[in-house]
């Protein structure tokens, strides 16, 4: 069984004794070693953490008004239709002009009135399908059911809120949608 060194008598596991050391001096030396060692490793660890946490500085794009389709492309009978939302996208260092950034369901509620719903399920972020047979939206992941206006149809649905509606503008027969993604899994509609 080996022994730890006493404050005033440094021992080694092999039994080679060093000189008597004043406890204070020994304490100072140990503290200094720890402080100097930590100072040496501080910069690499600090800067590694800084880069690791860099994504916390990034926020979503916010609301972007995007031309999605012409009014004629949306069925007049109120059936929702899915459209890709095409806009410029930045992915870290790359910039992609005119690339799909998401999708929306557009549904006519009048001759020149259109409602837009983000296709992303507010439960876990899957893409919601349109079920033509039951005229409702159904998430293929956890079976959340939504009515055509996006409200929760089946109370047992795991989705915490209705599908996310988006602002729509009609300009010269073109449908523009204020596209935005929202955080999944929350009762409130919080921008992602």
């Amino acid at each position: 069984m080996s022994h730890e060194p006493e404050p005033s008598h440094a021992h080694t596991h092999c039994g080679c004794a060093t000189t008597d050391r004043p406890g204070r001096r020994e304490f100072f030396k140990k503290t200094l070693t720890i402080v100097v060692g930590m100072a040496a490793i501080l910069a690499p660890i600090g800067v590694a953490i800084s880069v690791l946490l860099d994504p916390l500085r990034r926020s979503g794009k916010g609301e972007r008004l995007v031309r999605v389709a012409s009014l004629n492309a949306v069925p007049i009978d109120g059936t929702p239709r899915k459209f890709a939302v095409v806009a410029d996208r930045t992915d870290a260092w790359n910039k992609y002009p005119n690339t799909p950034i998401g999708a929306v369901y557009l549904r006519r509620t009048g001759d020149d009135k259109v409602e837009a719903l983000n296709v992303v399920c507010p439960h876990a972020g899957g893409f919601v399908d349109y079920n033509a047979a039951n005229k409702c939206f159904l998430c293929p992941l956890h079976n959340s059911e939504f009515s055509l206006d996006g409200t929760i149809l089946d109370p047992k649905s795991p989705a915490p809120r209705a599908m996310d509606s988006l602002k729509v503008e009609i300009r010269d027969g073109e449908i523009w949608v204020a596209f935005q993604n929202f955080r999944a899994g929350t009762r409130d509609k919080i921008p992602a």
Partner: peptide, 20 residues
């Protein structure tokens, strides 16, 4: 004779700090 901790380690730590 001395022990690695803290005698030699202090010198090592100072050298590491100097390198950094």
């Amino acid at each position: 004779d001395a022990t690695f901790w803290p005698d030699q380690l202090l010198m090592d730590a100072v050298a590491c700090l100097a390198i950094m």
